[in-house]
Simulated scan of single mutants.
Amino acid sequence: MSEDTPKPRRAPRKRKPAAKQPETRAAPTTSAPAEAPAAAPTALIRVPLSVRWRDLDAFNHVNNSKYLSYLEEARLRWMLSVPGQGLDEHVAPVVAAAHLNYRRPIEWPAEIAIELFVERLGATSVTIGHRIVDAADAEVLYCDGHVVMVWIDRGTGRAATLPEAVRQACSRGEPGN
């Protein structure tokens, strides 16, 4: 081809249709920030925390990534209450999935509370629901959702049976128990 000859154009690639996402269970709270939140099931733990100045982003509210840190802190405090902390030389928990619904921004200064409760108890995993609320007024909902924790065999990396101590601790926090 000479420099004056236009190059042939390729036909645009056809995109594959997006894979249909599996449906997930909705968190047992409101679907819109303006509505009052539904009552949460019996809590595994309620952890009060102070929002720190360093948690803020350029918009002067708590950065979305800090919500995960708040949830981690609450889960760790709950795990400390479980005999053996749900781990030993053979099994340990890992976070397999996290779902957060950001309902309203948290501004500084603020006192918040993280509430954890059992949504689902499986053979190798537990789905822990969460709510981040105002410490003085639990009807002020900042975030809700859930985290799936799976216990794995440290040697193989495969799912392992949920330790009995974890199952018992979760059963105390399941609705109706």
Rank of each mutant, 00 (worst) to 15 (best):
G157W: 02
Q85S: 09
D134I: 05
R154M: 11
A110P: 01
L71F: 04
R120E: 15
R172C: 10
R75I: 04
E174R: 05
S171P: 00
A18R: 13
R9F: 09
Q85T: 04
V147Q: 11
L80H: 14
A19K: 14
S69F: 00
E111T: 08
A97V: 02
K7F: 09
A38V: 03
D57K: 01
E111G: 12
H146D: 14
T24A: 07
A98N: 09
E139K: 10
L49Q: 15
R13L: 13
S69D: 12
V147C: 10
D88S: 09
F117Q: 04
G173L: 03
R172P: 01
F59R: 05
A92L: 09
G86Q: 08
T156R: 03
V51W: 04
Y67P: 06
P83G: 06
S125T: 03
P163K: 00
V166G: 07
V150W: 12
A110G: 02
V148F: 00
R104M: 13
G176K: 03
A165M: 05
A136S: 15
S50K: 11
L76V: 13
S50A: 15
T30H: 15
V126L: 07
P12V: 06
Y70W: 04
G157C: 07
T29F: 13
P33G: 15
A26R: 14
P17A: 15
L76A: 11
W151L: 04
S65D: 14
D4V: 04
A159P: 07
V150S: 11
C143Q: 05
E119I: 10
R75P: 08
S50C: 08
A34M: 10
K66S: 12
D57W: 03
L49W: 07
N101K: 06
A40P: 02
V82L: 10
A19P: 02
K66P: 01
P83C: 09
E3L: 15
H90I: 04
A138M: 00
R75H: 05
I45E: 10
A136I: 01
E23Y: 08
I106Q: 05
R172F: 08
R52M: 12
V147R: 01
P175Q: 13
E35V: 07
A39D: 15
V47W: 04
P12A: 12
A18D: 11
D137E: 12
H61E: 08
D144P: 01
E174Q: 11
Y142K: 07
Y67F: 14
A110N: 02
W78F: 10
R25W: 02
L100T: 15
R77V: 07
A34S: 14
A96L: 01
L100K: 00
A138E: 13
W151Y: 09
I152H: 03
T29W: 10
G176E: 08
A40K: 04
V147E: 11
E164T: 11
S69Q: 09
K20A: 14
T156C: 03
A26P: 06
D55T: 06
G145P: 01
G145M: 02
E107K: 05
